[in-house]
Amino acid sequence: MEWLLIGALLMAFATLGSARLGSCIRAVALQGACLSLAPLCTVGALADPHRLFLATASFLIKTVAIPALLFKSLRQAKIQQAVAPTISLHLSLLGGGGLLVGAFLAAGNFSLPTDPYPPLIVPVALAIIAVGFFLLIARTKAITQVIGFLVLENGVFLFGITLLGEFPLTVELGVFLDLLVGVFVMGIMIHHINRTFDHVDTKALTALKDSE
């Protein structure tokens, strides 16, 4: 169980440190796999339909569907593989280390009941969310923003699954709906930015103004 959490966090760092979009997407897919296996590794998971459903559905979405979608848009929009960071990869990794420390410090303030998951889940979820935000800020391409959003979403998912016992349906719906909506919106956005401007650099969006 703790292995999966650690794997998920290491994958978040892999997305921070990798210089190519392809390996970013693969890291996010692997992170999704770690997270979706997590509910299965708790006691009595195989007898609980909610947890079984959550695990299979999140595996299908996080590890199969979304990465496939991203790879497809990578091919169709002919996006270059380099990630184009605004903060260099060295500094990103160091910043990620700082966020990690912050997350572990902040986790002491949350007294959440994490049963049946180990208490490590709270700081790991916080750190993944922070890394997701960091990716959103520190990368310029629209597709890396989708990746940052997915990492963020994975962190929220980790928080969510601790509540699965009390509010199973809410968690499941919450997890899948906004994920799908997010990716579709982003997919459409990438497509449109690409068709209008011939590239997917979101820095160009700041130059947009109302016509007078």
């Binding site: 650690i6 966090l9 290491l10 760092f13 440190g17 060295h90 990794l93 160091l94 990620g96 280390g97 990690l100 420390v101 572990f104 490590l120 700081p123």
Partner: peptide, 14 residues
């Protein structure tokens, strides 16, 4: 090496 440092930091925090 920085990635290595971050992994060590993670081990420390865990």
């Amino acid at each position: 090496l920085i990635a290595n440092f971050v992994i060590a930091l993670f081990a420390l925090l865990v």
